[in-house]
Simulated scan of single mutants.
Amino acid sequence: MTQMLASVDQRTKLVGENRLELLLFRISVTQLFAINVFKVKEVVRVPSLSAMPGSHPSIIGVANLRGLAIPVIDLRKAIGFRPSAVYEQSNLIITEYNRSVQGFLVDKVEHIVNLTWSDILPPPKTVGRNNYLTAITRIDYQDKQELVSIIDVEKVLAEIIQYDIKLSDGVLDEQLLPLMQGKKVLIADDSATARRQVRETLEQLGLEVIEVSDGLMALNQLQQWCDSGINVSEHIIMLITDAEMPEMDGYKLTHEIRKDKRMSDLYITLNTSLSGSFNNAMVEKVGCDRFISKFQPDLLVEVVQDKLRQSEALLTQ
């Protein structure tokens, strides 16, 4: 397993080419689940766990890995199945999301597969709003075709951590509030939980939020505005986009926007749970204006306010 993940850092060339790699695992005998390899720090056998009295019911204990205390989440229980039992083949997937490290208990890690984002589809609408999936795909695996369900880890973590959208004192610039009333922001993110967090933060400022669930939908919306004669950079303050999305990722979306002269100057903020050092390099490569890691309401508001100040300064010149 260590060898399988040893080259994760070398796989960054896939990002920006609308490609991804999924770590496949099982939490039931009959179905494959997955998360993006870029979120994975390592995969280990389940060590002894220390109890955490008073913790969320889905947190089954704390693992001590090389001196770092890591909360362990029973992924089966967190997404609505019966609690897991720990078997000899059980694994912990150690991940980093939104600047926090946690372990997910799964039955067995299987494999890594290389796909394009165009292979990834949103979950069917018939599954309802309360599902824990951001996307699905089908792969040829072990001489048969299997359905793979991609976990909405941000939703899982939000139900456990309960992120607060309350702004800190002094963050909001009262002088800018009148300028923000009714102005629009476009959000592209495949996680309904992440979109809700951004929307509820920005609505506190009087902003109107337009939501889409993948990069291709965002590009189509922007192109429709351009085709109808709308100046996109005046119509919306900015695009806030996730990195990982079905159909088209945030890096490819940015690339497509920058090469279209009608909207090449659109302000783009990358808002993602992927690691900061990696994304800073990708932001520079594809041409995003800002990068912020999820979920930081104060910083999100500061980014919007900074953009408004820049716009006002240009108008007064």
Rank of each mutant, 00 (worst) to 15 (best):
H56D: 14
S58P: 06
L68E: 14
R82Y: 05
I94Y: 01
R82M: 09
R99L: 04
S48F: 14
V109P: 03
S118W: 04
A85Q: 14
H56R: 11
G54D: 13
L49V: 14
G103E: 04
S118Q: 15
L92N: 00
A69C: 07
V109Q: 01
L115A: 03
S50C: 06
G80H: 11
T116L: 01
S100V: 12
V72A: 02
A69R: 10
V72T: 07
L49N: 13
T116H: 07
P122K: 10
L65Y: 09
S55D: 15
I93F: 00
E88N: 04
L65M: 09
W117V: 09
Y87D: 14
L105P: 11
E96G: 03
L105R: 07
Q102K: 15
K77W: 04
L121K: 11
I70F: 04
V86G: 06
P83F: 07
M52G: 07
A63E: 06
K125F: 13
I94G: 00
G80W: 10
G54V: 13
I93C: 00
V72S: 05
A85N: 12
Y97V: 04
L65Q: 08
I60G: 11
S58F: 10
V101P: 03
G61Q: 13
P83E: 05
T116Y: 03
M52C: 11
I60T: 14
R76F: 03
D119W: 06
G54S: 13
L121H: 12
N98W: 01
M52L: 15
A51L: 15
I112M: 13
I60E: 09
H56C: 08
R99G: 02
V101Y: 02
W117A: 04
I120V: 15
G80L: 10
P122E: 09
T116R: 02
P122T: 11
E88F: 00
N98K: 07
P124S: 05
T116Q: 06
R82G: 06
E88C: 00
W117R: 03
S55K: 14
N98P: 03
G103Q: 01
K77Q: 10
I79D: 01
N98D: 05
E96Y: 05
I120N: 08
I60A: 11
L105N: 02
R45E: 12
G67A: 06
G61K: 13
V101T: 09
A69H: 07
I94D: 00
D74M: 10
A63N: 08
V46L: 09
P53T: 12
H56M: 06
V109E: 02
P53A: 10
F104A: 01
G103W: 02
I94N: 00
I59K: 03
F81W: 08
F104R: 01
S84K: 09
N91K: 06
V113E: 12
P124Y: 06
S55C: 15
A63G: 08
F104K: 01
Q89R: 08
V101R: 06
M52S: 14
N64R: 15
L115Y: 09
P123N: 10
